[in-house]
Every structure is written in structure tokens, then in C-alpha cells.
């Protein structure tokens, strides 16, 4: 990775005992998390897990009920020096509030306020995404709205860029193009990217580290490969599988039963998986990030 672009080096972005309540509903509970500088993070979680709220608080666009967000050890909230290093690109909505804003005006505001804004890069992205500059944002398709917020996020050259559902509404070609541009930009600048998405498998190869949120808590925060390496599907005759797991004190995370055959998702070490693979009648298969996510956040969903 090379850093040949003029912008401040990214620093760690931290959530320290963050809490957020909306009325009686608790969205984040004493959440501790650190996004290390210069990495691409995937932030995944089910609907309502608190991803957007977390990113909003980390970027000063939402108010924490408790705890605080820190960037390089300094509070984010109302701190000009810190806020200029962060950009949070959230999904734009076609609400009437945007009726008065054209794509051009939106990007002009970015140029005006983002200290590291790269205008030629913004123009290049506008061309690549074929964005209609004069159109009002609420007249754009959902995919085009995503492209506008992606353009602003990438052109902002903010050392830490948070993207909430950046690929929402994009077709598969546009999604591929987005990830390719993102990786090129990452290579050029070494910026930190935190990407929240529901289309996990497509983005998995881009994430160096992954954070999984479930019901306002972090249930995983580690290298993507290491995390996926800790999970396996074990399948075989139900009785044999149950006794093999019971002997080793393993609790399955997710179970699927089909007649007398059973398949479970298990978290463990290589030794455990080798032992189970050595058992006659049991099959051990690897999982992908999406499977791991379902196993961790599915709360033991049993499927027959």
C-alpha cells in the first residue's frame, strides 16, 4: 500500500462504552470498538442491529446517550479538528427535504466543506457513474442516489470514510465497479474504510477485518480470514453427530435437520475440526462469511 496523496494520515476511530437509546428502545449497549487506521472494515449486522446508529455517532451525525466516540484519542463530538478527518456517507433518501438539492449543488457543498476534497477525482467519478449533475437528488433512482453519496465519500479524501449500505440499489455491474474503484483508492491513499452492507459475500473479499453487530453488541471483531477459519459445518447422522459434539462439549450455533440427517454450524479450533473429520460418518465443510454471519446472528435458528 502506498500513500502518495496529500491528506492527514488516518488514526484510530474508537467507540468507548457507547450507548444509544431511542425513547425506551436501546440500540447500542456499552459498545467498545476500535477501527484501526489504514484498513478496510466490513460492518455487518441484521436490520436494526445498530450499524447506522453506530456510524452516525462515530461521525458526529448522531448523539450518543452514553459513552463517547474518539478519533486519535480526541472526542469526535463538535470537534472541528476531528470532524474534518471523517466522512459518513449514508444512504440518501428521496424525501422532500432533498427536493431543492441538485447533484451539482450536493457535490459543491462537499468541495466547500471537505478540506481534502479532490475535485478532479469527483469529476472522474461523476463521468464513470454517468451522474446527471443538474437533476434533483430526489428525482434520481435509488442506485443513482447511492452513486452520488459514493462519489462524495470517495472524493472527500477523508482519512476515515464510513459508508452505510453504499451498494444499495446498485446493479451487479455497478457494485463490482464500486469495489474496484474503492480498492484502487485504498491502494493510492491508505485511507480507512468502514463499509456496512447486507450483500456480504460480494464484499467479503474486500474486507480485511470484519465487525459483526448483533442487538447493539459486538459479537465479532477480527481478521476476516481468521474469523471464517473458526467456523465449520459438520454434518452426518443425527445421533452420531449429537454424541460427537456432546463428547467434546461443543454447542452448535445453528442446526438444520433433514430426516435422520443433521447439519450444524460450529465454532472451534483446527484440532476440533480435524477430530470431527476423523470420525466415521461425519463430514466437515468450510463456511463463507455470510454463513458465519447467519450462524452468529441467527440465534440458533432451526431449519428442517
Amino acid at each position: 500500500m502506498t500513500n502518495n496523496i496529500s491528506m492527514p494520515a488516518p488514526q484510530a476511530l474508537q467507540a468507548a462504552k457507547l450507548c444509544k437509546n431511542y425513547g425506551k428502545q436501546t440500540v447500542l449497549k456499552d459498545l467498545d470498538l476500535t477501527f484501526e487506521p489504514g484498513l478496510i472494515y466490513g460492518l455487518i449486522g441484521r436490520n436494526g442491529a445498530g450499524k447506522t446508529t453506530l456510524l452516525g455517532i462515530l461521525s458526529g451525525q448522531n448523539f450518543a446517550t452514553g459513552g463517547q466516540a474518539l478519533y486519535g484519542g480526541q472526542p469526535v463530538w463538535e470537534n472541528s479538528a476531528v470532524l474534518s478527518n471523517l466522512h459518513f456517507a449514508r444512504e440518501l433518501s428521496a424525501s422532500s427535504e432533498l427536493a431543492t438539492l441538485s447533484v451539482k449543488r450536493f457535490l459543491q457543498a462537499g468541495k466547500m466543506f471537505c478540506p481534502c476534497w479532490n475535485q478532479s477525482f469527483a469529476e472522474e467519478l461523476v463521468q464513470k457513474f454517468e451522474l446527471p449533475m443538474k437533476k434533483m437528488i430526489n428525482r434520481l433512482s435509488r442506485g443513482q442516489m447511492s452513486m452520488v453519496s459514493i462519489t462524495a465519500a470517495l472524493a472527500s479524501r477523508a482519512p476515515v470514510t464510513l459508508l452505510d449500505e453504499p451498494t444499495a440499489g446498485l446493479d451487479v455491474v455497478a457494485r463490482e465497479r464500486f469495489y474496484r474503484i474503492l480498492l484502487e483508492e485504498y491502494q493510492r491513499t491508505g485511507r480507512t474504510f468502514v463499509i456496512s452492507t447486507h450483500i456480504i459475500e460480494e464484499a467479503a473479499s474486500v474486507f480485511e477485518k470484519v465487525v459483526i453487530l448483533d442487538e447493539g453488541k459486538v459479537v465479532a471483531d477480527q481478521d476476516t480470514e481468521d474469523l471464517v477459519g473458526q467456523f465449520r459445518y459438520i454434518s452426518g447422522p443425527a445421533a452420531l453427530l449429537d454424541s460427537a459434539l456432546a463428547d467434546r462439549g461443543v454447542t452448535p450455533l445453528q442446526t438444520q435437520v433433514l430426516g435422520g440427517h443433521k447439519m450444524v454450524a460450529v465454532r472451534g479450533s483446527e484440532e476440533l475440526f480435524d477430530e470431527l473429520a476423523a470420525e466415521d460418518g461425519l463430514t466437515v465443510e468450510g463456511m463463507n462469511l455470510q454463513n458465519v454471519f447467519v450462524a452468529l446472528c441467527g440465534h440458533g435458528d432451526e431449519e428442517g
Binding site: N79, L83, H87, L101, F106, F113
Partner: peptide, 10 residues
């Protein structure tokens, strides 16, 4: 809201 979106203090 736009200036805050682009990192200006409230």
C-alpha cells in the same frame, strides 16, 4: 443539514 453531513460543527 448539509454542512454537518460534510463535517462542519453544529
Amino acid at each position: 443539514s448539509l454542512p454537518i453531513y460534510f463535517g462542519v460543527r453544529r
